[in-house]
Design a protein around this nucleic acid. Structure first.
Lengths: 330, 330
DNA sequence: CTGAAAGCGCTTACAG
DNA sequence: CTGAAAGCGCTTACAG
């Protein structure tokens, strides 16, 4: 165990340059002469120098830390997006600080403090902040705040995502085109899923359909809710012909329940999911779902951060698309 | 937008104390007089002061940042543990920096650099580092390194987890006790799953069983591999009577494939998973699995960090248990 | 219980 | 392309 970490001055001495040049070597290599760079590389390797980025953050007033706030991670529909975020942010030279807000945002205030205390370059929110006081606080703060997976009319600062209402509308059109008539909506009680349900109902009404049946379930959603969803469906008269589920997990669970009860999917009941998780394509029958491109959201986020760092203007609302993926189940 | 963040001196001035006392108020409140604390609280609220922890890290040479390195997050058997880690670490006053290593640890060296550059108080590894050079590098570094979900004979520094070999052995005993005779092992090609398979084979041999059939699948495992696993099983003669799957996802997928082929679980084929994910209890039939207590691993990790911070000695290997959860599928 | 002062390890205008 | 020097915002022995 080496007991003391080397610091910039020691590397500088060995390389025969000043600390400033070592700093430039790491942060702005193109300004350092090639021959100098060679000597520095050797010195860095010799002592195993790793720059102290906390000191760097303080001196430059740019932390290169990004806070990512997510409701949960154990089984979240955001996980693909979050994974892509972490990857892209890391590759771009940032440290990623992660916080779990819980689905009810109970802890949000404390976690925002934690992020601000690290002077993060940006706070990335996955999901919507509904608390007005918190929205106001973030709006007034100089730190960049980016909401993803949503496209509110009035973002805190910048939103990158899609309209859940529009997803609901597109789903209604799709379902109608496929010839279904009696939709059954399984709606996790999150603001996003509720908004999709609203969009569905609105478009469905416009298409001349009857008011769809609704089945609320708790949020975040999970596989086991397929059971609740199926139970809520069996008693109904007339019997729905398509179950539109708030997540692929619910859809998967519902299909298994239906099969256990002798109801074939899609022959006797069509089922649709949301999120286009990997399992949607692997399930029997494969599940018709809606794909959100998490990688695109992540890449767009990086682009926004880079433009902001360069002092360029950025629009407040950046739409990324969604796609209905038609498979066997509906 | 307030353009300048308040700093410790301004709060001190308003509260009528020195910056040192403000610092103590945040970091060691018990030494501050009650009446002083009241004035400080008011001043902090008045200007909306949030201490700069990057500056604090630099000054105190304790960053209160913990790095958590995981293979992935999209669909990982570690997710429960990682979630518990993040929660516990945050509640204990740390910032959590997360990095994705990929299952092959390709990026590990760079990510360790990233963690060290933040002078993290500890690096938490989920999964095993197999690269000898990296193990050596970490062993020589003064930063605390904790391996979780494993209990190697010779930890890098500290390991908190369980023996995968022992899990395999216990599984063999359980399967034997249940009266199964022809096991079929579905083994994701990760060092951990392979070690469980070794443990199983070793104990199974000792119990007088014949060499089990093996079916390798890629790692990380996922639902869709149930199909591969089932296909590998149908041709076998004699037909296995129990499929022991490297994860609950594989078990779930295999059950669905079996049912689609008219083979009932557990009547014609028993199935066992690993990880005791929520879906294991929700599946039809419910899945017999092995529970790893992620919360206990997380709590133990916190305890270790606290002891190290207090200068107390900590054992190199800290076992946390595992439990076989018997359900319907096996 | 509190304050004055040195120091943590970098970065960055500025000057050359 | 490079260096000298000031400064980033805290913490912590030390002294009282």
């Amino acid at each position: 165990m080496q007991s003391k970490l080397p610091k910039i001055g020691e590397v500088a001495k060995i390389a025969g340059v000043s600390p400033a040049t070592i700093s430039r070597f790491f942060n702005n290599p193109s300004v350092v002469a090639d021959e100098t760079a060679i000597r520095i590389r050797a010195a860095v390797a010799e002592v195993g120098y790793v720059p102290n980025r906390n000191a760097g953050s303080l001196a430059s007033s740019r932390s290169r830390i990004i806070a990512v706030l997510v409701p949960d991670i154990a089984q979240s529909i955001f996980n693909d997006t979050v994974e892509a975020m972490i990857e892209e942010l890391s590759n771009d030279g940032n440290s990623v600080m992660i916080s779990l807000t819980g689905s009810a945002n109970e802890m949000l205030d404390r976690q925002i403090d934690a992020a601000l205390s690290r002077r993060v370059d940006a706070i990335l929110l996955t999901g919507v902040v509904t608390d007005a006081a918190i929205r106001q606080r973030l709006r007034n703060h100089p730190t960049t705040v980016i909401e993803t997976w949503a496209l509110p009319d009035d973002p805190i600062q910048i939103a990158i995502g899609f309209s859940h209402f529009a997803v609901g509308q597109a789903t209604a059109q799709f379902i109608r085109d496929r010839g279904y008539r009696r939709p059954y909506l399984v709606v996790p009680q999150s603001s996003r899923a509720i908004e999709r349900a609203e969009g569905f109902r609105s478009a469905w009404r416009d298409l001349g359909g009857e008011e769809p049946k609704l089945q609320p379930v708790s949020s975040p959603s999970h596989f086991g809710q397929g059971r609740v969803a199926f139970r809520g469906l069996v008693g109904l008269d007339p019997q729905p012909d398509v179950a539109i589920c708030g997540s692929d997990w619910i859809a998967q669970g519902l299909i298994i329940e239906a099969h256990a009860a002798g109801i074939r999917v899609p022959d006797s009941l069509a089922v649709m999911g949301f999120g286009d998780l990997r399992l949607a394509g692997d399930m029997r029958p494969t599940i018709t779902s809606i794909d959100i491109d998490g990688h695109e959201i992540a890449r767009e986020t990086i682009r926004v951060l880079q433009r902001l760092a360069a002092g360029e203007p950025v629009p407040a609302r950046l739409p990324v698309g969604f796609r209905i993926i038609a498979r066997e189940s509906a």
